[in-house]
């Protein structure tokens, strides 16, 4: 076992991990942050996306021990300080950007990473950026709408199909 220390959602945390402990396992089982979901566990679906040093990363495809010293943000770190939903989360609620909700943590984290790089993306850019996030309810139209709304763009003309 090896001791790792990270900053997770602003707090310094430490834990003992095996070499093979995935970041997703460390977050969920070590830190009880179960908002990060593991869907496929094969780096295809994107449900487990978190931010590592500000970049979107599939937490099922990174070793915790390799990220010693990193700064990690999970879905639990996306709400405002007063506990209200963050901008991207609120947009998903307002525009019905989720059905079963399983993919939502990864969708929100990927969307937030996109908006950090590109504050006013086009619909095509949103779709391209979310290629690695799969919604098996197939609720993509409202997810795209929510991300565009979170960027402050008018989405009144975008119909849910």
């Amino acid at each position: 076992m090896t001791k790792v220390t990270m900053t997770v959602n602003g707090a310094t945390v430490s834990g003992e991990v095996e070499g093979r402990t995935l970041l997703s396992s460390f977050l969920r089982e070590g830190l009880a942050l179960t908002g990060t979901h593991v869907g496929c566990d094969t780096s295809q679906c994107g449900a487990c996306v978190v931010h590592v040093d500000g970049k979107a990363v599939k937490s099922c495809t990174a070793f915790a021990v390799d990220l010693d010293g990193a700064s990690v943000t999970t879905i639990e770190g996306m709400a405002n300080a007063d506990g209200s939903l963050g901008v991207v989360q609120q947009a998903f609620q307002d525009h019905h950007g989720l059905q079963c909700g399983f993919c939502t943590p990864g969708m929100v984290m990927s969307a937030a990473a996109l908006l950090a790089e590109n504050s006013k993306p086009t619909e095509a850019e949103v779709r391209h950026y979310l290629e690695g996030n799969i919604c098996r309810c197939t609720g993509y139209h409202n997810i795209i709408k929510a991300v565009l709304a979170a960027s402050g763009q008018d989405v009144s003309g975008i119909a849910a199909e």
């Binding site: 990363v57 495809t61 990927s110 996109l114 290629e131 690695g132």
Partner: peptide
């Protein structure tokens, strides 16, 4: 290549 999260690693 792949998707954004894959490209970041």
């Amino acid at each position: 290549i792949g998707d954004p999260a894959v490209r970041n690693r």
